[in-house]
Protein backbone atom coordinates (compact mmCIF):
# COMPACT_ATOMS: atom_id res chain seq x y z
CA UNK A 1 0.00 0.00 0.00
CA UNK A 2 1.26 3.47 -0.82
CA UNK A 3 1.17 6.52 1.41
CA UNK A 4 -1.17 8.46 -0.83
CA UNK A 5 -4.64 7.37 -1.53
CA UNK A 6 -5.85 8.38 -4.98
CA UNK A 7 -9.30 9.96 -4.99
CA UNK A 8 -11.84 8.73 -7.49
CA UNK A 9 -11.78 12.00 -9.43
CA UNK A 10 -7.98 12.12 -9.37
CA UNK A 11 -7.87 8.64 -10.80
CA UNK A 12 -10.28 9.59 -13.60
CA UNK A 13 -8.20 12.65 -14.42
CA UNK A 14 -4.98 10.65 -14.65
CA UNK A 15 -6.56 7.94 -16.78
CA UNK A 16 -8.03 10.55 -19.12
CA UNK A 17 -4.60 12.13 -19.48
CA UNK A 18 -3.40 8.71 -20.51
CA UNK A 19 -6.16 8.36 -23.11
CA UNK A 20 -5.49 11.77 -24.59
CA UNK A 21 -1.77 10.99 -24.78
CA UNK A 22 -0.08 13.91 -26.54
CA UNK A 23 -3.20 16.10 -26.50
CA UNK A 24 -3.86 16.27 -22.76
CA UNK A 25 -4.35 19.92 -21.94
CA UNK A 26 -6.90 21.45 -19.54
CA UNK A 27 -9.88 21.94 -21.80
CA UNK A 28 -9.37 18.64 -23.65
CA UNK A 29 -9.28 16.72 -20.35
CA UNK A 30 -12.44 18.47 -19.17
CA UNK A 31 -14.29 17.69 -22.40
CA UNK A 32 -13.09 14.08 -22.52
CA UNK A 33 -14.32 13.39 -18.99
CA UNK A 34 -17.61 15.13 -19.62
CA UNK A 35 -18.13 13.13 -22.80
CA UNK A 36 -17.09 9.71 -21.52
CA UNK A 37 -18.59 9.84 -18.06
CA UNK A 38 -21.54 12.14 -18.78
CA UNK A 39 -20.84 14.34 -15.83
CA UNK A 40 -20.01 18.00 -15.75
CA UNK A 41 -16.59 19.06 -14.57
CA UNK A 42 -15.94 22.60 -13.37
CA UNK A 43 -12.68 24.24 -14.26
CA UNK A 44 -12.01 24.83 -10.60
CA UNK A 45 -12.41 21.20 -9.64
CA UNK A 46 -10.30 19.96 -12.54
CA UNK A 47 -7.45 22.35 -11.96
CA UNK A 48 -7.46 21.78 -8.22
CA UNK A 49 -7.02 18.09 -8.94
CA UNK A 50 -4.32 18.76 -11.54
CA UNK A 51 -2.47 21.02 -9.11
CA UNK A 52 -2.60 18.46 -6.31
CA UNK A 53 -1.44 15.64 -8.57
CA UNK A 54 1.40 17.74 -9.89
CA UNK A 55 2.34 18.65 -6.33
CA UNK A 56 2.48 14.99 -5.39
CA UNK A 57 4.64 14.26 -8.40
CA UNK A 58 2.13 12.10 -10.26
CA UNK A 59 1.90 14.55 -13.14
CA UNK A 60 4.30 16.80 -14.99
CA UNK A 61 3.32 19.58 -17.31
CA UNK A 62 4.86 21.76 -19.96
CA UNK A 63 3.61 24.71 -21.99
CA UNK A 64 2.85 24.17 -25.66
CA UNK A 65 2.24 26.41 -28.64
CA UNK A 66 0.00 29.49 -28.60
CA UNK A 67 -2.90 29.73 -31.06
CA UNK A 68 -5.11 32.54 -32.24
CA UNK A 69 -8.34 30.98 -30.99
CA UNK A 70 -6.84 31.09 -27.53
CA UNK A 71 -6.05 34.79 -27.65
CA UNK A 72 -2.35 34.01 -28.06
CA UNK A 73 -2.22 31.95 -24.88
CA UNK A 74 -0.31 28.65 -24.73
CA UNK A 75 -1.73 25.22 -23.88
CA UNK A 76 -0.37 23.36 -20.87
CA UNK A 77 0.10 19.65 -21.64
CA UNK A 78 0.05 17.13 -18.81
CA UNK A 79 1.81 13.76 -18.64
CA UNK A 80 1.53 11.00 -16.05
CA UNK A 81 4.91 10.39 -14.40
CA UNK A 82 6.32 6.97 -13.55
CA UNK A 83 5.28 7.33 -9.93
CA UNK A 84 1.85 8.37 -11.13
CA UNK A 85 1.65 5.28 -13.27
CA UNK A 86 2.67 3.12 -10.30
CA UNK A 87 -0.03 4.74 -8.27
CA UNK A 88 -2.64 4.06 -10.95
CA UNK A 89 -1.62 0.46 -11.24
CA UNK A 90 -1.76 0.12 -7.49
CA UNK A 91 -5.25 1.53 -7.46
CA UNK A 92 -6.33 -0.82 -10.25
CA UNK A 93 -4.86 -3.87 -8.54
CA UNK A 94 -6.53 -2.95 -5.27
CA UNK A 95 -9.86 -2.80 -7.01
CA UNK A 96 -9.30 -6.06 -8.85
CA UNK A 97 -8.39 -7.74 -5.62
CA UNK A 98 -11.61 -6.50 -4.09
CA UNK A 99 -13.60 -7.78 -7.03
CA UNK A 100 -11.90 -11.15 -6.94
CA UNK A 101 -12.67 -11.60 -3.26
CA UNK A 102 -16.43 -11.24 -3.63
CA UNK A 103 -17.85 -14.73 -3.16
CA UNK A 104 -19.57 -16.03 -6.26
CA UNK A 105 -23.30 -15.61 -6.37
CA UNK A 106 -23.42 -12.58 -4.09
CA UNK A 107 -24.00 -10.12 -6.97
CA UNK A 108 -26.89 -11.45 -8.99
CA UNK A 109 -25.74 -9.51 -12.01
CA UNK A 110 -22.36 -11.25 -11.97
CA UNK A 111 -23.20 -14.81 -10.82
CA UNK A 112 -19.72 -16.14 -11.49
CA UNK A 113 -18.02 -13.79 -9.05
CA UNK A 114 -15.53 -11.95 -11.30
Amino acid sequence: MSKHQLGEFEEIVMLTIGILNEEAYGLAIKKEIEERLKRSVSMGALHTALYRLEDKGFLTSELGEATKVRGGKPKRFFKVTISGQKELRQAMEDRQQLWRDIPSGVFELFPSGK
Binding site: G26, Y51, R70, G71, K73
Partner: peptide, 8 residues
Amino acid sequence: YRDDLEGD
Protein backbone atom coordinates in the same frame (compact mmCIF):
# COMPACT_ATOMS: atom_id res chain seq x y z
CA TYR B 1 -2.04 28.24 -14.48
CA ARG B 2 -2.71 31.88 -15.43
CA ASP B 3 -1.95 31.86 -19.15
CA ASP B 4 -3.02 28.40 -20.17
CA LEU B 5 -6.27 28.67 -18.20
CA GLU B 6 -7.09 31.91 -19.95
CA GLY B 7 -6.43 30.20 -23.26
CA ASP B 8 -8.71 27.33 -22.27
